[in-house]
């Protein structure tokens, strides 16, 4: 084969394709600001850790729903499973053994969730949106029932008490002000985000978007669709499980509330708020969602729920693709205007 110098079109195509995975300025600013919250809002650190954890769950929903197009109402199940798995490990590790090491706890939480995610992924391979919605919801309800009924293990409705994780990496003890918890949660979120980012911008990620776009064609070009869906569902379950583990470790508690239906619904709503299929949608969504909840919910809980409902209806009727979609449209309009003048 002779070495052919690539055409200008090929060079341009390479640049365009590779350019999509380059880190943008806005992204770098986002993460600098996110970590800077440590100094910006020193009194709000537990809320901020919670937002980071919710963001991780929303990111996991994004992988399944935003990229692969599987409607799920069950991501809360994996969150709860991760929380209980890590919580139990920390509880029975008694704060000393390797079991109560937080980082190992993350792998335990994520791992158990991933195993269950893998097992249940086969249930969502077929069927319409409605079937998938019901199946994921059904699995979440079953997990909820199991957690509530297995009192000897989970503590039932009282929750899992005495979760005492040891110091992170044996160095940083969790403190009362949530400083370690915040930095720990943010680092975990960032690391998993970087991996997810690579994943969605890879051929694997492209194949997920293709499955979402047209399953008939993906099969016709020889793509192992089911294997891809199983893979992404399992990875997403791992992410949600890690988020659950983080929640159990940083709050030193796990309760049936962690597996409740509203967890799944909230995660999906956060993603949709921010914009599905954008990676940052879930993160932005969790910030807005949790802040709104904090501000409005403090007035009265009904107030928050009412405005959440109104926002959802308005989002569906008037705004395509959440906040990021809105920003994208505004940017496009602005560019068009700039180009015309």
């Amino acid at each position: 084969m002779s070495a052919i110098t690539p055409s200008t079109e090929a060079i341009r195509a390479r640049a365009v394709l590779l350019g999509r995975s380059r880190w943008g300025v806005a992204e770098i600013i986002f993460w600098v600001l996110a970590f800077a919250c440590y100094w910006l809002f020193p009194t709000k650190l537990s809320l901020l850790s919670e937002i980071a954890i919710l963001g991780l769950v929303a990111l996991s929903v994004d992988l399944v729903l935003g990229y692969a197009g599987i409607v799920t109402l069950g991501q809360g199940a994996f969150f709860g499973i991760g929380a209980y798995a890590a919580g139990l490990a920390a509880k029975h590790g008694m704060g000393t053994s390797l079991w109560s090491d937080p980082v190992i706890g993350l792998f335990i939480g994520g791992g158990v969730a991933a195993v269950i995610g893998f097992a249940t992924s086969f249930l969502v391979l077929r069927g319409s949106d409605m079937t998938r919605l019901m199946v994921t919801l059904g699995v979440a309800l079953i997990v909820d029932e199991v957690v509530n009924q297995m009192k000897w293990l989970t503590g039932g409705s009282d929750g899992l008490q005495g979760v005492l994780p040891s110091a992170v990496l044996g160095i940083w003890e969790f403190d009362l002000f949530g400083r370690v918890a915040f930095v720990y949660s943010m680092v975990v979120l960032f690391v998993l985000f970087v991996i997810a980012r690579a994943l969605v911008k890879s051929p694997f990620g492209l194949s997920l978007q293709a499955i979402k776009g047209n399953m008939l064609r993906t099969r016709a070009i020889g793509m192992p669709v089911n294997a891809r869906l199983v893979a992404v569902y399992t990875v997403a379950a791992f992410y949600a499980g890690v988020a659950g583990a983080l929640a159990a470790q940083t709050t030193q508690f796990a309760s049936p509330d962690y597996v409740a239906f509203h967890r799944s619904a909230d995660a999906m709503l956060m993603l949709v708020f921010g914009g599905a299929g954008h990676l940052y949608g879930g993160l932005l969504g969790s910030i807005i969602f949790r802040t709104m909840q904090d501000v409005l919910g403090n007035i009265t809980p009904q107030y928050w729920q009412f405005w959440l409902g109104v926002t959802l209806v308005a989002l569906v009727l008037f705004v395509r693709g959440g906040i990021l979609g809105l920003l994208g449209n505004m940017l496009a309009a602005w560019r068009r205007k700039g180009g015309a003048s």
Partner: peptide, 18 residues
């Protein structure tokens, strides 16, 4: 279907709050 789900959940939330 996703939009329909979100929209109708939104209505549910509004009705519950009211």
């Amino acid at each position: 279907h996703l939009d329909q789900v979100l929209f109708s959940i939104g209505l549910v939330f509004i009705s519950i709050a009211m």
